[in-house]
Every structure is written in C-alpha cells, then in structure tokens.
Amino acid sequence: MNHHPGAWGQTLTPHQRFDAYSSSAPSRYQPSSAGSGVVGNDHGMYDAGNEAVMAGGTGVVGHTQQPLVTGTSVLGLVFDGGVMLAADNLASYGSLARFRDIQRLIPLESSKHSSSCLAVGGDMSDFQYLQKQLETMITNERTQALGDDHPSLGPRQIYEYLSNLMYARRSKMDPLWNAMLLGGVKDGESFLGYVDLLGTTYTSPTLASGFGSHMAQPLLREAYESRQAQGKSGEREGELMSRDEAVAVLEDCMKVLYYRDARSMNKYQIATITASGVDISASKSNETEWKFAEGLRGYGPQKQ
C-alpha cells in the first residue's frame, strides 16, 4: 500500500487497494465487499472513524472505529487454588510488532476477602481508559469500605460493572474494542468470566479470547476435563488441576499460539489469583523448534 503523504485522500484502484501484507490494523468487522483478504478503505489510509452514521447531514455523529494498537488473545483457567490468566507482552500496530514490553494483566481489588485480576486483548488505548475507570471505581469503593461494613468488591461485582460498561458502550454504537477475561477468588470461590466489545458475557472454568478461542480453548478444555474425570473415577483426589499442572497447560497453550498466531510473541506472563492475592509472574518464554520449517516451501531454501 502507498503510504506516501501525497497519496493520502486519493481514491485507489482495486489493484492499488490490495494489501498483500495486511499492513493496516486488523478489524473484526471488515465490509463484506472487501472480504477475501482485501483490507483497506477508499482513502488508502486508516479511516479516522467519526463518519456520519445517518445520511442527509443530520449532524448525528457515529463513533464507529477500528482498533489500532492491539493485544492478541488472553487465556484463563480455574485450578484448585484459584484462577490463572495468561497474556503475552506484545501490543501490535497492524502487523508491526510495535510495543514489545506491555503488561496486559492488571491486578485489581485484593483484600482480605477477595482478589481479582483482568487480562485484556484488543485496543490498547481503550484498555488504558478502562483500567483507569476500573481503578477509580475500586479506589472509591475502597475508601468507603473503611466505614461501617461497606461491602467490598469481589470479582463478580467487578465483572458486572465491566459487563454493564461494555454493553452500554456498544449500545451507544461507540464500543470499547476489547475482549477481556476477569479472574478472581472470593471467600474461597473461584470466578472466571469473559466480556467483549459487544457486551457479550459468559463464564466457564476454561476461557480464551480471539485466536485463543480456536487454538487454546480445546487444549484447556481437554486438560480440565481429563483432570475432572480422574477425580470422578477416584483415580486422584479432587477434580481440579494443581498450580503446577495449570501453569504447564497454559505454557503449552502459549507455545501453540506463538507458533500459529502471527500477532503473538514468545514473551508472556501468567497471573495466579488465589485467596492470598494476585501474583503476576515475570515475563517468560518457551523453547521453540523451527527445524521442521526448513522443509516447507516458502520458508526454506526451496524454490517452487
């Protein structure tokens, strides 16, 4: 694509519009006419959003936008002591690996009664805005909580707030472009929930967003269910994975995602949320093996 300033605002021919490297930021909502790998718009530049939604110059402004700097999938898993979340450290600008040391796991309220943590994918500026909103709300509640038995915020309360916020924004046609997992523990009970830009919510003992919902969720479910079966048959005590087992499964999932998700990075963190608080690991990476690729056409030295 021609990024020269002189080309800005010019109408492009379909040929010029074809973007083999998909260099503009990825969007879940491409127009049907521009499907099949053609990414772009009439201006040959990112659309600034804020197009008038209603025809006839009514002055009604829509906020439809695209994500620009994005984080990829996040994973979540319930284990016997609480919940674990995983996310890599990359914030991409389209296909460019732009920011390589971004933490996408944020610890939220943790008190004697509960601990919560959020893992975020999608637009990073929307995420930073959200983080501020949440922290404001939580600080506010915490200062009140010193009074007479003011209830403290557990993961379910934070999740409800987050869901309402996301749904309200999508209903204004001005969504926060994120897919998030909220994990937490309150009074010994684990919680893991998903919420995205449409306000869609669901809970499950294993969760993954974006690419991870295709690649990692099956692996997480398999691990979770086989451990559950071992418990049910009496082969092992309890039905949930131990902390070490959970870490191993998540590491495996992050490796698979690194191999297959072009917007991922081999540097990630795992948050462990237990009754005693939120522990966010140092960044780690997996051993990878690329020798097999030498034999692949297009990667190795082979021609045709």
């Binding site: 600080t139 915490r142 200062t143 010193l146 007479d148």
Partner: peptide
Amino acid sequence: GANRRIMSLDNHVG
C-alpha cells in the same frame, strides 16, 4: 464497633 469515625480519603490517606 459500629459508627466508625476514622475515614479514608484515598488508598494511602486516613
């Protein structure tokens, strides 16, 4: 123990 008198202004201020 009810009717608390000491208040928080922020996380780090009483």
